[in-house]
Amino acid sequence: LVRYRTISKIPQITLNFVDLKGDPFLASPTSDREIIAPKIKERTHNVTEKVTQVLSLGADVLPEYKLQAPRIHRWTILHYSPFKAVWDWLILLLVIYTAVFTPYSAAFLLKETEEGPPATECGYACQPLAVVDLIVDIMFIVDILINFRTTYVNANEEVVSHPGRIAVHYFKGWFLIDMVAAIPFDLLIFGSGSEELIGLLKTARLLRLVRVARKLDRYSEYGAAVLFLLMCTFALIAHWLACIWYAIGNMEQPHMDSRIGWLHNLGDQIGKPYNSSGLGGPSIKDKYVTALYFTFSSLTSVGFGNVSPNTNSEKIFSICVMLIGSLMYASIFGNVSAIIQRLYSGTARYHTQMLRVREFIRFHQIPNPLRQRLEEYFQHAWSYTNGIDMNAVLKGFPECLQADICLHLNRSLLQHCKPFRGATKGCLRALAMKFKTTHAPPGDTLVHAGDLLTALYFISRGSIEILRGDVVVAILGKNDIFGEPLNLYARPGKSNGDVRALTYCDLHKIHR
């Protein structure tokens, strides 16, 4: 019993810090008490220290592992850092350059016999395009090294910054494609005289377009951006097909006994025919423009016929181009109408809503002055909100995010209106959640004399007048207030005048 009563005193000691020596009952000389009392004092002292730490809000209350900052290894790049964003855009520009100039170089340097010394005699450094290609190869190699040090988000939505895990993730992902696209074939085969082989191998750079397509997928929600990307894709495919079309004609031209190829026909049409040795002929500019003209006309199913396939190889390629053109029509131009419709969806919704308003007016036989006010209010409210119901949009977000959005939407009023000066951010967040926005066209009466005042109004834009009878008592403008002081009276009061809008007004109100 003594032991039980001794232990039962522990909660009292913990909360009230009572010393055991003052209790005459606990001072009985028993061996059990002498053993338990020192333990009680020690526990009391420890609990006292913990309570003191909690009340003082000291940093040592938290466990040590929670006080440590997340460790980022040296030379690790955050995937959302500004440097990584700028670097990704730079790589994107280099990939676009590669997609345009690599097929052009591979096709127009394929057994090209233009006048001038061969590239091997001039030297590697004197070729501007080769120098640019070398810079692109170096940048792609540097990009691989950067990807080995860039964080990523795993399946659990955690940012991984450990170098080993980053390397394994990159090896399992895009490393092989990036490595093949970054191989400097110019340096590996330079001086061997195989410019045709170098041009063909350099087309491996186009593998990076797969990554670019995935990154550009984030802009699919913007109709104008999608339309622009589709047109660029169409032009890029036409450019690639033009390079292939020229390569076919250029390879067949020296081996044909009869002059029936499209390059021969082009030379005869523009007065620059090929001679018996295969030299001469149109310039590279004429060849490229004509090839691009043929691919565009074939892809769009126009086909004027002034550039036509004559050999079997050219006919087979033309059939493939027609098939590609039909697929592009289905996948690209078939979506253009939907994209344009999405661009004008706001206008369509406006006309639909206006039609419903006019049908309501016609069905209920609203008189002319009231009908005009109804239409003007709808037009003004639509121009202010673009038909978007803010309350319906915010309803799907958590309250903390709703408060931040409301604070942002009402920031101008909260910053410049005098009653809100000096208020804490928590108070402003709470008030912003209570605001209701209303609009009024010129001549609209917001409050009639004798109406119950259940709200306090803040003028965000425009001006109003307060009338008693036919006498203008006051004219209020931006950041002015009218209405009933909230919670100042037990019952809502009545208006002693009319409140009429002089201009288009936007008002925020808080109800009782």
Rank of each mutant, 00 (worst) to 15 (best):
Y274H: 01
I366E: 02
L230W: 09
S297V: 01
A125R: 14
I237R: 01
E221H: 09
S412E: 12
I77K: 01
H364N: 13
S412M: 13
L92G: 01
V302I: 02
C417Y: 12
Y80W: 04
I361T: 03
L299C: 01
C417I: 07
E64S: 06
N156T: 13
Q341F: 04
A69Y: 04
L446G: 02
Y104C: 01
Y350R: 04
P118H: 09
L129A: 09
G116L: 06
T445H: 10
R74Q: 09
P367K: 13
N335T: 03
D444H: 04
R429P: 01
K434V: 05
E121D: 15
G325H: 01
Q353H: 10
S345M: 13
H351W: 15
A440Y: 05
G426W: 01
Y350E: 01
L428I: 06
S326D: 01
M251S: 10
S308G: 01
G173S: 13
R165C: 11
K425V: 07
Y384F: 06
K172F: 09
E314V: 01
K84D: 01
V142Y: 01
I405S: 02
G443L: 03
E158R: 11
T290M: 01
L431S: 02
Q269L: 01
I91L: 01
T290I: 01
P419Q: 04
L323I: 07
I183L: 09
R421C: 13
V210N: 09
T290F: 01
F108L: 01
T311A: 01
A432L: 06
M251D: 01
L230N: 14
I237N: 01
T150V: 06
D186C: 11
A106S: 04
D137P: 01
K434S: 04
I146K: 01
V307G: 01
N250L: 11
R71A: 13
F333D: 03
T424E: 07
G278M: 01
E115Y: 03
E359S: 08
E252R: 01
D143F: 01
I91T: 06
D133K: 01
Y97A: 01
A182W: 01
C232V: 05
T295P: 01
M179G: 11
T120S: 12
A130C: 03
T385I: 01
H264P: 01
S345I: 09
W245F: 01
E314A: 02
E359C: 01
P441L: 10
V307S: 01
Y65C: 14
F190D: 14
V336C: 01
G422I: 06
H380A: 14
Y293K: 01
C427V: 10
V100D: 01
S326M: 14
N335L: 04
P103K: 01
E196T: 13
D404H: 01
